[in-house]
Simulated scan of single mutants.
Amino acid sequence: MSELQNFSNSLDETIKDSNLTEINTDLFEVLVDSFLEDGVAKDIPIIGTILKLGKFSMSLKEHLFLKKIVYFISELKDIPPKKRNQMVSEIDESKTYRIKVGEKLIYIIEKCEDHISTEYVAKFFKAFLLEKISYSEFLRCTSIIQNIFIEDFEYFVQSDNLERENRWNEYFSDIEMNLVNAGLCGKDLGEISVRDQDDWKASDKYVVEGGRESLYITDIGIKIKKILK
């Protein structure tokens, strides 16, 4: 069995069947310091797999991956195994998705810049498990978090006045443009109207009105704000 298959099967099993109530982010330091092979590590398949792989010397890559895994599964501990199993099995058995959930999550977590990004991914996955978003929307959320500067993302989550219309000769900020490029916000060019000039002394024969750009939050952006607030 390949390393990827081993990891994906272990994560799948962890999400579906493991009791995660004892998991918290403090566990990471304990695991790294002691390389525990029984107790919690034994009960959580994905952690046991990583620890066995690095039994004699854990590389920096394995060290960081373990940290991200612990932060990920700690977000799911409040959801009963039965519910986790039901939701993951629906995707695994679906003909729509060709990659099983465990393997897909390995790809996603591997690409996360750090454990902070991983926590956001976990919150999105938790929202999927609780049926607040679809699996497709979960994947869209993870794509956004992996392709945006994290401070811009947190600015988006915390801001309450993003939607606005530009004043004349005004441009959207770099942060706002990053939110547009990430898919969290969109730009809309207002309707343009042309009418005859009322002032016959004016040099312009016609008056052009409207056409100001406005910033709005996309549907997926709205859902992300609801999940994280």
Rank of each mutant, 00 (worst) to 15 (best):
V40F: 04
V40Y: 03
V40H: 00
V40E: 05
V40T: 09
V40S: 01
V40M: 01
A41I: 03
A41P: 00
A41R: 00
K42A: 12
K42F: 12
K42W: 07
K42L: 11
D43R: 11
D43N: 14
I44Q: 01
I44F: 03
I44N: 00
I44E: 03
I44R: 00
I44C: 04
P45T: 09
I46A: 02
I46N: 08
I46P: 02
I46G: 01
I46R: 05
I47L: 06
I47N: 01
I47T: 02
G48W: 06
G48L: 11
G48Q: 08
G48C: 07
T49R: 04
T49D: 07
I50S: 05
I50R: 02
L51K: 01
L51F: 03
L51Y: 02
K52A: 10
K52E: 11
K52H: 10
K52N: 15
L53N: 11
L53F: 10
L53E: 13
G54M: 04
G54S: 08
K55G: 01
K55C: 02
F56E: 15
F56D: 15
F56M: 11
F56A: 09
F56R: 13
S57A: 13
S57L: 14
S57N: 15
S59E: 10
S59P: 07
S59Q: 10
L60F: 13
L60K: 15
L60W: 12
K61M: 12
K61H: 10
K61F: 11
K61I: 12
K61W: 07
E62C: 07
E62G: 09
E62Q: 14
E62I: 11
H63F: 15
H63K: 15
L64D: 15
L64Y: 13
L64N: 15
L64E: 15
L64F: 14
L64V: 13
L64I: 13
F65G: 04
F65D: 08
F65C: 07
L66D: 04
L66G: 02
K67I: 09
K67Q: 15
K67P: 05
K68I: 11
K68F: 10
K68L: 11
K68V: 10
I69S: 03
I69C: 02
I69D: 04
I69W: 02
V70R: 00
V70K: 00
Y71D: 08
Y71W: 14
F72M: 07
F72S: 05
F72I: 05
F72H: 04
F72A: 07
F72W: 06
I73Y: 02
I73F: 04
I73G: 00
I73Q: 02
S74T: 09
S74H: 08
E75S: 09
E75V: 10
E75M: 05
L76P: 04
L76V: 03
L76N: 06
L76E: 04
L76H: 06
K77T: 08
K77S: 12
K77E: 06
K77D: 08
D78I: 05
D78Q: 11
I79C: 02
P80Y: 05
P80T: 07
P81S: 12
P81I: 06
K82D: 09
K82V: 14
